[in-house]
Design a binder for these strands. Structure first.
Length: 525
RNA sequence: GGCGGCGUAGCCAAGUGGAUAAGGCAGAGGUCUGCAAAACCUUUAUUCAGCGGUUCGAAUCCGCUCGCCGCCUCCA
């Protein structure tokens, strides 16, 4: 009689929960690697959580990455951010999203001016020089150009407009040619970096400037001193403060509200906090929807930084390691975690790449030689490899969907690599079918590798590149000649002579491997 | 002092509530090889800094302790 009244019963609830679980398990068994709903999750600094990524405009995504202030050569830390967000962009594109990617240059700032003074040149010349150097480094690291690469000095009008607007709205005030943002007017100040203003004021290290209403107020426009670069403004000759250029450029090239704003963790406060304040105060709309921040490159557990002086420039590192090695190293740790720079870690990355290209060399050889009519025994079973390939594709995507987990996606690449080697080791492989599957495997690896901007070279190019960077004395021709001599000795079973030649080459950093298919050489690490 | 984060094998590094704790390097044994190398196979964490708690179930959530780091000043 009372069955229309539902009383919650803990046992029944538990039972239902278990049934739900059972259903899910059954589904997993029934449809192991079928089309999974590909939902990309990204960690948002603002909310402190991984969130499902939903673009503002379906199918499109706008990203603004804080680039560099061009006053010096880039170090590995700069490379990390550039590489990571390059991968983010490539992955988003690979998912079929139309990405608009903006990466700026801050080309006017105190440090640039200081350097120009020191070198007796202009700020413009300093900025130009290090912008060029930035491109050189990033090109070598395989970082793609952004869709727009705006410069602060090209956006002075826009900056002035925003500053004027902020004064009008009562968010900013002018004193003797300087304009400050009044943080007390912006209630949400501190929300991104999760700090409250009272505590910060209590902090000893906040710069004290008597003219500011609040020590935390920051400069939007700076009156310029004599013989400093300046632009005319309603407040007299001056230049933009740090932070404002990013607001102006992101609004101009993206929108007042856009999808992703990214940068290094050290930009969370004050840079990004200030960007939010000035942008949202100006537009009255939310600024970036999602904030991504990459972790630091550490050296001996310490942050690599200019001020500590413990940094290595990209150029220095590329003198010793191939760019792909550096890129692999940078992607072998999740982007939000710190990554420890050391020779040992770089060498490990090189070793991993060696493993990859060694396998690819085997694949290439199989493909070309079996095409020439060899290895055409029949029988064997190769469908398991195509299962592995499909599994890999799913796993790769799953890893990348999980907040761009490149470390895991690389792990999956090596799992597939082992499968390929295992396949290659089986002598009973059918040539025709085997070739098709191996081609598929290597194409798949290349395709996914493209997202990471890794694994794109020919195995021979790789070996040559490593040889070049290691500075081996022997030329390729000499090496080939020695291999010829040695193989002659081997044919005559003159093992002593053969071993002597191998040792001689090894002394010069060249390793020989006698494969059933022939002898190949490699560079010793 | 405030805020944030980290601690997984000898090393690097995934995993952040459920199915055997990925992957790489190094080590041991084996297959292959003239010998090697490469590759493959087997093996290497009964346990996730420590101690409590929540839960049917915790490396994963909560609390405390220890150790390390970052931001609060320019920094990617």
């Amino acid at each position: 009689m009372l069955n229309h009244i539902h009383l919650p019963d803990p046992v029944e609830e538990r039972f239902n929960a278990l049934e739900e679980e059972l259903r899910e398990l059954k589904n997993r068994i029934r449809y192991p690697q079928t089309e999974r709903e590909s939902t990309l999750k990204i960690y948002n600094t603002f909310t402190g959580k991984k969130e499902e990524f939903i673009p503002i405009k379906p199918g499109e995504v706008g990203i603004y990455v804080c680039g560099v202030t061009v006053y010096d050569f880039c170090h590995l830390g700069h490379a990390r951010g550039a590489v990571i967000f390059d991968v983010v962009r490539r992955y988003l594109e690979s998912k079929g999203l139309k990405v608009r990617y903006i990466r700026n240059f801050t080309d006017i700032d105190d440090k640039i001016i200081d350097r120009a003074k020191k070198e007796g040149t202009t700020a413009e010349a300093v900025a130009k020089k290090f912008t060029d150097e930035y491109y050189k480094d990033m090109d070598r690291l395989g970082v793609e150009r952004a869709d727009v690469e705006p410069k602060a000095t090209d956006h002075i009008d826009e900056i002035i407009e925003i500053v004027e607007g902020l004064i009008e709205k009562g968010y900013a005030y002018e004193i003797e040619g300087d304009v400050f943002f009044d943080i007390s007017k912006f209630g949400r100040y501190g929300k991104l970096s999760k700090r409250n203003t009272d505590e910060m004021i209590a902090g000893v290290r906040v710069e004290v400037n008597e003219r500011k209403r609040d020590p935390l107020d920051f400069v939007l426009w700076k009156a310029s001193k004599e013989r400093e670069p300046s632009w005319s403004s309603p407040w007299g000759p001056g230049r933009p403060g740090w932070h404002i250029e990013c607001s102006a450029m992101s609004m101009k090239h993206l929108a007042e509200t856009f999808d992703i704003h990214a940068g290094g963790k050290d930009l969370i406060f004050p840079h990004h906090e200030n960007e939010i304040a000035q942008s949202e105060a100006y537009t009255g709309k939310p600024f970036a929807k999602l904030w991504m921040h990459n972790g630091f490159v550490n050296i001996n557990q310490e942050k690599m930084s200019k001020s500590l002086g413990n940094f290595f420039t990209i150029k220095e590192i590329l003198n010793v390691y191939d760019p792909e090695v550096v890129r692999f190293f940078l992607l072998s740790t999740h982007y939000r975690s710190p990554i420890d720079f050391s020779d040992r870690n770089l060498e490990e990355a090189e070793g991993a790449l060696n493993r990859f290209y060694t396998t690819m060399e085997r694949v290439d050889r199989f493909l070309t030689e079996s095409a020439a009519g060899k290895g055409d025994e029949s029988g064997g079973e190769s469908s398991w490899l195509s299962d592995e390939i499909n599994l890999f594709k799913n796993r790769f995507e799953e890893a990348m969907d999980d907040d761009f987990n490149t470390a895991q996606s690389l792990g999956h690449i090596f799992e597939l690599l082992r499968s390929i080697n295992r396949f290659l080791d089986k002598k009973e492989v059918i040539a025709e079918e085997g070739r098709a599957i191996l081609k598929l495997a290597s194409d798949t690896l290349k395709e996914k590798g493209k997202i990471l901007s890794l694994f794109q070279r020919d195995s021979k190019e790789w070996v040559k590149a490593v040889k070049k960077v290691k500075g081996t004395t022997f030329s390729e021709e000499e090496i080939q000649k020695k291999i010829g001599e040695r193989n002659e000795a081997r044919d005559n079973k003159d093992w002593k002579k053969a071993d002597m030649i191998r040792k001689e080459l090894e002394k010069h950093g060249i390793l020989l491997e006698d494969r059933p298919e022939g002898t190949v050489w490699k560079v010793k690490r």
